[in-house]
């Protein structure tokens, strides 16, 4: 019995050690960067590291996506590469989806988010925004033969939206006379309008420009509805160093005409001639 007890002790000890080891491994970074003064995403830290980690989308053409060669491309991605180049460091992309952009910054998984990230009051509480580089607003698409050009035409009619979008928000709070037909995904909402289930469809105008280009029977009758929304780079709350640098960088790139070039190369093929660069990009002085 004594022998058995010893064996048990050894086993328990072994298991505990292994678990403790794993816990230590998960906790070992604690001492290195827990204090806030030691900002792991400051400009100096990024330069020392030699790489900047930038969060981008991997599945949202034409902003951030991956082409058939496996290369990351898009409007945001081109900006990301330029930012890294001007910092004099390599770029490392962290792919995010809409829901984990804030967590990615807060957990120091990325230094900067360039993922079609729209400024909202709620998000302002949890991240810091640099100067915007794009603007979007709600647009309304409708069949060309029954084009809707004014919001008043929509009273009492069915409008198709995707849940959780700014378009849904806008119509729920500002246009109460409109019947909303809500869907879960972009694919579903576009199928719904094709099947004639609503008089019009509302979404970010930039998506709609891209969509009508492939579906010429439809038109973006209302291009801007409600206030403009701004898309800007975001850094972790309190990261002054990178925030200031990014603001200067946006100014510099605006002056150089970078965003216009970026627009022409990445967005124009998707949006077509109906849209002018000035509908989308911001040239801050």
């Amino acid at each position: 019995m004594k022998l058995k007890k010893n064996l048990m002790k050894k086993i328990v000890l072994g298991a505990s050690l292994l678990m403790a080891g794993l816990l230590v491994l998960t906790g070992c970074g604690q001492s290195s960067s827990s204090s806030s003064s030691n900002n792991p995403s400051s400009v100096a830290a990024i330069k020392k590291r030699g790489t900047i980690k930038i969060a981008v989308f991997g599945d949202l053409p034409p902003y951030g996506w991956v082409n058939s060669q496996g290369k990351r491309v898009g409007y945001d991605v081109r900006l990301a590469r330029q930012v890294a180049k001007d910092l004099g460091v390599k770029v490392k992309f962290v792919q995010v989806n809409a829901n984990n952009r804030v967590d990615t910054l807060n957990a120091n998984k990325a230094d900067l988010v360039l993922a079609n990230f729209t400024e909202t009051p709620e998000r302002k509480q949890v991240v810091d925004w640099a100067k915007p580089y794009m603007k979007v607003s709600v647009g309304v698409v409708s069949p060309k033969n029954k084009a809707i050009t004014k919001v008043s035409q929509l009273n009492g009619k069915k409008v198709i939206v995707t849940k959780g979008t700014t378009a849904e928000n806008y119509f729920t709070s500002k246009q109460k006379g409109v019947d909303l037909l809500k869907f879960d995904s972009k694919t579903q909402q576009f199928n719904a309008i094709k099947n004639g289930r609503g008089a019009a469809l509302a979404d970010d105008n930039s998506y709609l420009y891209a969509w009508v280009k492939k579906n010429p029977k439809y038109t973006v009758g209302i291009k801007h509805l409600g206030p403009n929304q701004f898309i800007a780079p975001a850094v972790k709350k309190g990261n002054k160093s990178l925030l200031n640098w990014t603001n200067k960088e946006i100014n510099k790139l605006s002056k150089k005409g970078f965003f216009e070039k970026d627009y022409n190369q990445e967005l124009k093929p998707y949006f077509g001639k109906e849209v002018k660069p000035t509908d989308i990009i911001i040239n801050s002085k």
């Binding site: 794993l22 998960t26 970074g29 604690q30 827990s34 792991p40 957990a107 998984k109």
Partner: peptide, 22 residues
């Protein structure tokens, strides 16, 4: 928990694949 919350608490920064393996 392993990818977002633990790193925030402990300042640990390992790639997602490593955290996922653990």
């Amino acid at each position: 928990l392993f990818y977002y919350i633990l790193p925030r608490q402990f300042g640990l920064n390992w790639p997602g694949s490593v955290m996922a393996t653990i």
